[in-house]
Write a protein that binds this DNA or RNA. Structure first.
Lengths: 133, 133
DNA sequence: CTGACTGCAAACGTTTTGCACGGTA
DNA sequence: TACCGTGCAAAACGTTTGCAGTCAG
């Protein structure tokens, strides 16, 4: 398990109980949207404000500590920033899986076919997971 | 040039001047967001309502006649549905280019590495276009 | 002790809805 | 003519902001 307060310090974010809980929840769930995060944290901090969630998520995005994942037809989810990976989203149960794919070939294809200089890449599959297929 | 009213008919959408203009504008621009579409159409139909734009975009998405493209840190854009392709988004000038990439290898990698059954795929690169790099 | 964080309430921008009118088929 | 589409206004959302009080460093 990640030491959440340590991680916050490394990213120059003041350590507060709310922030620790946010990081813990994201670690636990892997990916979470604002609403689910808010409702989970309400259990531990009944008076927590949605504004606090938004402000902290943005602070963590700004520090590149979190990444946003855009989901077709649903709210964005947030995850800890880590090695480039792709997402598999189930259209039935909405579960999000991570998968490591070889995207180097895509990058070189872009470079050879166009004059575009790629920096970031998002690869999202929608379909059906093992349980729902 | 596409015959816009013919295309609307094929998708079982009643042909109205506003709808023709929406399709024409999307053909012309390739990709457009709601706001830009609204402002373009205002020139031709000064009394057009944003509600009309939203209702029609949704009608066309429902018929799978349009596709939505999610853009990191910006509003979604809409394009005519066509063959699977990827998007290159310039972080400086915000231009969106289409590119045909070989994504079959990604699909087979997903299939072999997981039990997920992929159906749709979104591949979006952000970086710098020829002019801005 | 100081500046940053929290929670509240209000403001904001975007999208959706209901309704009366008008236009398409 | 019957139904669907349009435009308007209001409502509903999701997100952001300002502020006063509180807490971390």
């Amino acid at each position: 398990m990640v030491d959440c307060s340590q991680v916050l310090k490394e990213y120059n974010l003041k350590v507060t109980p709310q922030r620790i809980a946010i990081v813990e929840e994201i670690c636990l769930k892997g990916h979470i949207n604002i609403d689910d995060l808010f409702h989970s944290l309400k259990l531990k901090f009944p008076s927590i404000s949605l504004a606090t969630i938004y402000k902290n998520i943005h602070a963590m995005l700004d520090k590149l500590f979190l990444s946003e994942v855009q989901i077709p037809n649903a709210k964005s989810v947030y995850e800890l920033t880590r090695e480039l990976h792709s997402h598999l989203i189930c259209k039935k149960c909405n579960k999000i899986e991570d998968i490591q794919l070889d995207t180097a070939c895509l990058v070189s294809e872009v470079t050879s076919k166009s004059s575009f200089k790629p920096e970031e890449l998002s690869v999202v599959f929608t379909g059906f997971c093992k349980e729902c297929r």
